[in-house]
Simulated assay, not measured.
Amino acid sequence: MDASPEFTLVIGATGTTGSRVTAQLAAAGRRVKAASRRAAPVDGATPVDGTTPVRFDWDDPTSFDGALEGADRVYLIPPLGSPDPAAVMLPFLRQARAAGVHRAVLLSSSAIPAGGPAVGQVHQALPGLFSQWAVLRPSWFMQNFTGDHAHAMTIRADGTIRTAAGEGRVGFVDADDIAAVAVHALTEPQAPNTDLVITGPQALGYDDISATLTQVTGRTITHHRLTYEQMRDRLAADMPAEFAAMLAGMDRTIAEGAEDRTTDTVQRLTGRPPRSFQAFAERELGLLRS
């Protein structure tokens, strides 16, 4: 790894992957600007270890200058829930390049190719903006079954996981492994300059997930299969109809086999295998029981 004195700007530093990227960079002795709307310190990272909280808000361009000052690379989390993230991200990225950032690592999704909807437009533009870049395209997070995600909430409420994915299989991946790949892409002497599909070691159906959670937690967890329309309408009760239709459509593509794959990205770039869902569930047992 190189030893640049500049900062790595981590946008979304209090989020699922951003907090882990920040912690891993700090543990490796990197100087980090941990950007969030609150500019609050990240757990485990203090000014002593080179981490500086900084305010950043995609909806407030006046926050961009301060966040970019002294940064030569950036980890990008798109604005959550935005139907058109490119509208705000591309002006920021052009400003970042002018400010001296030469490397950008973007969090996207395995379900969204370059040029696809939403963040796919940013993915497509990134190589034309930076000489060093990477786009992370992780599969569905294992963390979807813990914390505040809808699946976690229904597991706690009534022991169910509701999807329109049918028998489709997904290469669920631990956010810790995504962060490890991000840190590699941010810190190696040469950036990957490609997109990286990131999965766990197995493609699992939601029936498999339910069985593992049942075994680990001692509670009966079941997978309730919904139609696309049922899933869309259920989601639309809590979010805009267009976004609900997109999410339900992702379940439909899972049912059609689009996510039934695994990759060697974690092993190849970090030198260790990705964590299995069984190991993840056992590690998170306290959360799963809560």
Results as ranks from 00 to 15, higher is better:
Q132E: 14
L288S: 11
V135H: 03
L288I: 14
N144Y: 09
Q121W: 04
A164I: 04
R261E: 08
Q215V: 14
L213Q: 15
G120E: 06
L285A: 14
Q143L: 04
G15K: 12
P61R: 08
M239S: 09
I198R: 01
S290Y: 14
V32K: 00
P61H: 09
A237C: 02
V170G: 02
G200N: 06
D176H: 12
S108P: 03
R73I: 07
P91W: 04
L9P: 09
A118R: 13
T62A: 15
P138G: 12
A150Y: 13
Q190F: 07
G116H: 11
T270L: 10
F277K: 12
G12N: 12
G249C: 05
T62F: 08
I161Q: 05
M250Q: 10
M153Y: 05
G200A: 05
V119A: 05
L126G: 02
R219H: 15
T8V: 10
A191L: 09
R234T: 10
R94P: 04
G257M: 10
R97V: 00
T263A: 09
I198T: 05
R94M: 01
Q278G: 07
M153N: 05
I221C: 09
M231V: 03
N144Q: 11
L235V: 07
L126H: 06
A152N: 06
I209N: 01
A175G: 08
S4K: 04
G218V: 15
A165T: 07
V181H: 08
V216K: 12
M231I: 00
P83C: 08
T163W: 03
L80A: 09
H224N: 11
A241T: 12
G200L: 14
A23V: 03
